[in-house]
Design a protein around this nucleic acid. Structure first.
Lengths: 152, 152
DNA sequence: GTTGAAATGCTGTGTAC
DNA sequence: GTACACAGCATTTCAAC
């Protein structure tokens, strides 16, 4: 992956868009003391380069009924790891899945409606997979901070 | 927190906005076979209720120079936990910080430029805090899936 | 990088059904 | 919930600097 040349202005644009993805070019231009056209071109370039992956919306998962957040550390037999990961990724309950260093190679974040659904996920969907040697699970109690943007 | 009555249409709107936060009311209306006004009112209500927290932009952290992603499990003395969490939350390198069940109560995701910055974070900013009894760290090797939206 | 102008399209609002 | 209309903006694209 090629390193992009992101300058201070780009970072300011990204910061403003993180806070308000609907902010208009004109308002960004005013904020940064540049012209609308310059802002538009920078944003387009940031999108082309893949720095901006997409415009989106931040949803409060509690309020759409996903009351239970769980994190899993999953150890796999080395030869099964990719297959296990790819299966988990297909599961819509799995919000994220990372390969990490350390004894527990796969880290996974799961969102479900309730504990019944969590129990079903663990027993029917997770433990059913071949090649898993150990699972450690944690339930989320409190969010102190949640992906509130990068340090730009 | 009051449970909202989110219906199937709301979920479809949220899904579309997750994929493209800039999608116009008109296009959403066409997609769902409703009127423009109906879509606008639903989105406004979703924002008022806090279901939609904000419109934002998804940034590829690698491409803005955050090459290293690390996860920490931090055990604290019970009386220090909230203070430790609140201090960490103030740190811009900390992307998220959760209190979990299980032996490691605080889980934390940190984004930094490189290993020098990570080392500095660990030694100067994390280990310097009072009340921490154990830290386990993991470095991200590979993203199989990354918060690609809720299962709506 | 800037400004200006014109065409187009979307939003916000109100009205009526 | 729908349909329509109107004003106010924002975006897009052009040209010129």
């Amino acid at each position: 992956m090629r390193q992009m040349k992101i300058d201070a202005t780009d970072r300011k644009i990204l910061k403003l868009l993180t806070e308000n993805g609907r902010m208009s070019y004109v308002d960004i231009a005013k904020e940064l003391g540049l012209s609308r056209v310059a802002i538009r071109e920078r944003i387009n370039q940031l999108m082309e380069e893949g720095v901006i992956e997409k415009f989106s919306v931040v949803i409060n998962s509690d309020k759409v009924g996903k009351k239970v957040s769980a994190f899993f550390e999953v150890d796999c037999e080395p030869t099964s790891l990719v297959k296990v990961a790819e299966t988990l990724v297909e599961n819509p309950k799995v919000a994220s899945c990372y390969q990490m260093t350390g004894p527990s190679t796969l880290h996974m974040h799961v969102l479900v409606e309730d504990f019944d659904e969590l129990e079903h996920f663990i027993n029917e969907e997770l433990y059913a997979l071949q090649g898993i040697t150990r699972v450690e699970s944690h339930i989320l109690l409190r969010r102190f901070k949640s992906r509130s943007g990068l340090n730009l």
